[in-house]
Computed example of a mutant assay.
Amino acid sequence: MRRVEHVMGFPVSLRVDDEDVPGSAADAVFGWLREVDERFSPFRPDSEVSRLDRGELSESGVSADLAEVLGLCEHYRVATGGAFDVRLPGRGLDPCAVVKGWSVQRAAELLRAAGARRFVLNAGGDVVASGGPWRVGVRHPEHADQLCTVLALTDGAVATSARYERGDHIIDGRTGRPATGLLSLTVVAPTLTEADSVATAAFAMGAEGVEWAASLDGCEVFAVDAERRVLRTEGFPTAGEPSTAA
């Protein structure tokens, strides 16, 4: 089974190699992601996030899903000393950095519940994989047609935060300025909820975020800093390709 749709502002591709998984499983995955976009997008004025931001909802009155997301946001705000913050001064509530990984991980759990054991779900370059090993390329932070490393992913997730797609869009909440200490940072973790949130939170911290992310249980890190030096944890699952940014 293979399927690609544009959801939440980026392409989402699904590949399932199990022959007995029904097509309804893919329907459930993309239906869930569309629901997430409707409920949690800060760019939709009628979303639950927008209504909370305008004060039309109290935090005690939000859905269980949004409460979970906001709890994750607060966890990473505290863990990074405020570098990661979804409530920046002068900006509306924007939990997208957590919502993406959290929702795609939930979609992967829908696949497993439907009997899928060997699959890859790729959401705008952030990947949940099962039944590998799968080879996942990490884009070079300065050259779109090159990879800076390839990793082998069996059961787990990988996410990258970088400046190459949207410029200096990740803000260090401690300073209110764009985080510029890194060119890209990739995290491998057991779930995409962790991988995506940790990658963004660590990127917001700048160079010190590499060591912070590497200290977390289950996380392996590959980063390229502003001086184009490669920083990689010993357990990062490279698949044998050169891992330089030069």
Rank of each mutant, 00 (worst) to 15 (best):
A83M: 10
V69H: 10
A107R: 02
Y76K: 03
C96R: 08
L88D: 05
C73S: 08
R91G: 04
F84Q: 04
E74I: 14
T80D: 08
E74W: 00
V69W: 15
R106K: 15
W102V: 11
L110I: 10
V86W: 02
A108H: 11
E68Q: 15
V69T: 00
L88P: 06
P89C: 12
D85C: 14
L70D: 09
G71Y: 12
R87Y: 10
P95K: 10
L93R: 04
A83P: 00
L72E: 14
R87Q: 13
A79Q: 12
F84A: 14
L88M: 12
L72F: 04
A97W: 04
V104I: 15
A83K: 05
L110V: 01
F84T: 04
A108Q: 01
E74L: 13
V78F: 12
D94G: 05
S103I: 07
D85I: 04
G92P: 00
W102F: 12
G90F: 12
V99S: 05
G71V: 05
L110R: 14
E74H: 10
G101C: 06
F84Y: 15
L93M: 07
D94R: 05
A107F: 13
A97T: 07
R77F: 02
R106S: 09
V78I: 13
L70P: 07
P95Y: 07
V98G: 01
Y76G: 03
A97F: 04
R91I: 00
V104K: 00
R106V: 08
V98C: 06
E109I: 04
V99L: 09
V99G: 08
E68F: 13
V98E: 03
L110P: 03
V86F: 06
L110N: 01
V69K: 07
V99T: 11
L72H: 13
V104G: 00
D94P: 03
V98I: 15
L70V: 11
V104Y: 00
G92H: 10
G92S: 12
A83S: 15
L93I: 11
E109A: 08
G71W: 11
L72Y: 10
L111E: 02
D85H: 02
R87T: 01
W102N: 07
A97V: 05
T80W: 02
G90E: 01
G92F: 14
G101P: 08
L72N: 08
C96K: 11
G82I: 08
H75P: 02
A79H: 04
P89I: 12
H75F: 15
L110K: 07
R77L: 09
V98W: 09
R106H: 13
L88Y: 11
L93G: 05
V86P: 00
P95T: 10
L70A: 03
